[in-house]
């Protein structure tokens, strides 16, 4: 659909190697506050994602307690602020095994980011390469990619994942690989579409005429241009993957229960929702804010870099 329009992002990124993003220029020129005022959602997204990343990286220093040390006597201890007995030492309360919920949520950021980022990395690398080839070479390979996309659309991921995880068992890396090898199609489609459009542009034609090889053209001229779309999609998919991990864990197929994953915490706590609401609410809020952060960031990036991609 975007064929008749200008190629996304080309104005901003035409000669760049990726360093000259407009956001940065704006920062230098207009100052910090103006940037915030002009980009409230982008800034909010960055704050949310930044917080999660900091939690994940510095978890051992931030977390007040050991997230895996059970203390059965403190099972479902009240959060400090709602504690009437004055005995609780846990800010956000204790989980069913008497572990500190806050520490588990902080460590949980690691799992969610691992799933999101590594899953997306596999999908993006696979999808971009295949999409570039499909778009540039065309022919049967293009057909193949498009049929794969149709298959992916028609075979519900959750059902496929349940089957595969019944065979291979749970575990974070199984989920990562599953997501990666299923969702590459999204990247391939977008990259392919842009390559098809870019191919016809003058400077690519010119490079072709001057005798550049196919690979060189793809790497020098086309890849930098599709990069922004890939980045946007990667951000949005990270959000989606974090949710999918939670859903799979909800169905009893997720990661090892001692590992503090948000999906696992939510799934374990669903029956405590009445009697120990904090076990269900706080991990849910953590997921929600993280996913929201990635979505805000992706949305903002899309507006800045690539106004033509649609959800």
């Amino acid at each position: 659909m975007s064929l008749q329009q200008t190629v996304p992002g080309t104005e901003d990124l035409k000669d760049s190697t990726g360093t000259e993003v407009p956001a940065r220029q704006r920062l230098r020129a207009g100052g910090f506050w103006r940037f915030i005022r002009k980009n409230p959602s982008g800034v909010l997204g960055m704050i949310l994602v930044g917080t999660v990343v900091i939690c994940a990286v510095f978890a051992p220093w931030i977390a007040p307690y050991n997230p895996t040390e059970a203390s059965l006597g403190e099972r479902l201890a009240d959060p400090i602020f709602a504690d009437e007995t004055g005995e609780s030492r846990y800010l956000l309360g204790g989980d069913p095994l008497g572990r500190d919920l806050l520490s588990r949520i902080i460590y949980g950021a690691r799992i969610s980011l691992q799933v999101g980022i590594f899953g997306v990395l596999i999908a993006a690398v696979l999808g971009t390469i295949l999409g570039l080839i499909a778009g540039y070479v065309g022919k049967w390979f293009d057909d193949f990619i498009m049929r794969a996309a149709d298959v992916q659309l028609a075979f519900p991921f959750i059902l496929f994942a349940i089957i595969i995880m019944s065979v291979l068992g749970g575990g974070i890396w199984v989920i990562v690989v599953l997501l990666g090898i299923t969702y590459w199609v999204g990247f391939a489609r977008i990259v392919r579409g842009q390559v098809v459009a870019l191919k016809q542009l003058e400077y690519v034609e010119a490079a072709k005429a001057s005798g550049s090889t196919g690979l060189r053209i793809v790497l020098r001229h086309i890849f930098p241009n599709v990069f922004s779309s890939v980045l946007v999609l990667a951000t949005l998919f990270t959000a989606e993957f974090i949710l999918l991990e939670a859903s799979l864990t909800f169905l009893g197929l997720g990661v090892d229960p001692t590992i503090p994953s948000w999906g696992g915490m939510l799934s374990d706590s669903r029956n405590y929702i009445d009697s120990a609401w904090w076990t269900a609410v706080f991990p849910g809020v953590a997921i929600m804010l993280t996913v929201l952060g990635f979505n805000l960031l992706g949305d903002w990036l899309r507006d800045r870099l690539d106004p033509n991609i649609k959800a």
Binding site: A239, S247, S267
Partner: peptide
Amino acid sequence: FGGRMFSLIGISFPNFWLGI
């Protein structure tokens, strides 16, 4: 801004959690 936040929050919930 409010409308866009609303729509983004909508897709940020784990669906089973929202249901419960």
